[in-house]
Design a protein around this nucleic acid. Structure first.
Length: 151
DNA sequence: GCCAACGTTGGC
DNA sequence: GCCAACGTTGGC
């Protein structure tokens, strides 16, 4: 089993939205490195931390489980969607998503400030300078540390 | 709203 | 292939 961190802006889709929906396609990712993780890296049963970016506070707010592995993101073909990509070939889709099942919202969000202050989490990609990747791997140890901090 | 740190595009 | 211009991300 592998562990991941997924960023989302809560103004567009929040942990509360995911809990309400139960399951959701993690759509709208338009970065090739992140796409590769969605398409090739994430496996059924993997766990993902959900992170709220551009929020107050910016924080890891809950966790989810991968219930369906990479498949084409339908929003790339939807002209009315913000993430419509007219250049993505229908027979060779450019963008992928996984389906997530909400697991829980944390009792206490683990803020970016708390993560930066924790020596054991210094290696997280999240806090590496200039690292904007919206789908990123975390180690089991990092994942478990975040979960402990969220109690 | 600002702007640093990227990633992408396109002319050459 | 180079690289300037442009667009986006995301913390502050």
């Amino acid at each position: 089993m592998s562990y991941w961190l997924l960023k989302t802006e809560p103004s567009s889709y929040s942990i509360d939205d995911l809990l309400r929906d139960g399951k959701a396609g993690w759509s709208g990712v338009r970065n090739y490195q992140a796409r590769n993780f969605l398409r090739d890296g994430m496996k059924k049963g993997d766990r993902a931390l959900i992170y709220h970016s551009s929020a107050e506070p910016t924080a890891v707010v809950g966790e989810a489980e991968v219930v369906r592995e990479g498949h084409p993101d339908p929003t790339q073909f939807d002209r009315k969607d913000d993430h419509y990509d007219p250049d993505s070939p229908a027979d060779e889709p450019r963008w992928f998503q996984v389906e997530l099942k909400a697991l829980r919202k944390f009792p206490h969000p683990v803020t970016l400030a708390e993560i930066k202050a924790e020596p054991d989490l210094r290696e997280m990609l999240l806090i590496r300078r200039g690292m904007r990747l919206s789908v990123q791997p975390v180690t089991k140890e990092q994942y478990q540390a975040i979960v402990r901090m969220a109690r």
